[in-house]
């Protein structure tokens, strides 16, 4: 596969994106005058960095705030507070032209391959529009580029004439990837890109994403609830619970020796398609609390199975602390 755009500046391994104390609260309004009666703390002081060329997986269950965090990062949602630095620039204070430049560097792939494509446009029209808006190619050059993009994701140039509903789910996801690649980004947020696909098609898309990363030197922020996928594709992992990062670390070490009790429970809960073994399962009791009304202290303490759970867990919010290796965990007892 040829590389159609130059390698981005900066060394591999340096931080491309730095997120500090990102917070997104949604007001809960009530009454005739829309008085604010509370806050949904969707994202509550999240910090992480994504290094050039790596894949950081943001993992969490529903209500953990992972998608809100990602959308805030691209300013598809305005965060309440925090700093997002993209390639040394503060992304949250960009003006309109600056934002347009950001959107050439950072792109997003969505979960639902049916909802994420405009049903009225052919694939070619959709891609040409992007090339046109960003002044990347016109006329015959645009035509050639569309063919290139489709080839890049394993489709045929002739597919440009077809409409989204004429493709299968996996093919539509490829089209979604081609759309993201059209602006030649350095950074791609993949929001649950395979969860809506058939099992037998997921591997195709995961392999494609891995190939594209290698060939085009892309940096990924991979958002998912599926830990098996994380293990396969991520270099580093950040586990989120109720709007906070509770553990981060290198993928291998986090999966081999999780430090936070939530990570441990999460890993134990994943069903494995293998001959049944007697597994020592940590079953979590109860449900995830509502982000509108998070518990005081450690957000995880009401469900936490840790034997040493005590008063401090119920009162003080634990911060991320180094726990050896390159990992950090937000647990008083880790």
């Amino acid at each position: 596969m040829k590389r159609p755009w130059p390698r981005p500046d900066g060394d591999a391994g340096s931080a491309l994106i730095e997120v500090r104390d990102l917070t997104k609260h949604f007001p809960i309004r009530s009454g005739v005058f829309g008085r604010t009666v509370g806050q949904i703390r969707a994202v509550d002081g999240v910090s992480f960095q994504v290094r050039r060329g790596e894949t950081l997986a943001l993992v969490g269950e529903s209500g953990s705030g992972k998608t809100t965090a990602a959308l805030s990062l691209l300013r598809l949602m305005e965060p309440t507070a925090g700093v997002v630095t993209f390639d040394g620039q503060n992304a949250l204070t960009l003006d309109r032209p600056g934002l347009k430049r950001l959107r050439r560097k950072a792109q997003i792939i969505f979960q639902d391959p049916f909802a994420s494509l405009n049903p009225r446009l052919t694939v070619g029209t959709m891609l040409r529009e992007i090339l046109h808006v960003h002044g990347l190619a016109r006329g015959a050059a645009a035509e050639a580029r569309v063919g290139e993009l489709l080839a890049l994701v394993g489709l045929h140039a002739a597919d440009a004439m077809r409409y989204p509903h004429q493709f299968s789910g996996g093919q539509r996801q490829r089209i979604g990837i081609a759309r993201a690649l059209a602006v030649e980004p350095e950074f791609i947020i993949a929001d649950e890109p395979v969860s809506a696909l058939d099992v037998s098609v997921q591997a195709q898309v995961l392999n494609l994403l891995a190939d594209l990363q290698r060939n085009l030197h892309l940096t990924y922020l991979f958002i998912t609830h599926d830990l098996s996928v994380v293990r396969q594709i991520a270099d580093r992992v950040a586990v989120m619970y109720l709007g906070r990062v509770v553990e981060t670390g290198r993928c291998e070490s986090l999966f081999e020796s999780p430090r936070h009790p939530y990570t441990r429970a999460l890993l134990a809960a994943v069903p494995v398609p293998e001959v049944r073994r007697t597994r020592s399962r940590v079953l979590l009791s109860g449900d995830i609390a509502s982000p509108a009304n998070p518990p005081p202290g450690c957000p995880f303490h009401p469900r936490c199975p840790h034997p040493d759970k005590d008063e401090i867990c119920r009162t003080a919010v634990p911060g991320l602390r180094d726990v050896g290796g390159a990992g950090q965990a937000a647990c008083h007892k880790a």
Binding site: R103, S116, E129, V133, H134, G176
Partner: peptide, 8 residues
């Protein structure tokens, strides 16, 4: 959302 992300 994708269209907005693409800077349209």
């Amino acid at each position: 959302l994708a269209a907005r992300a693409l800077g349209l």
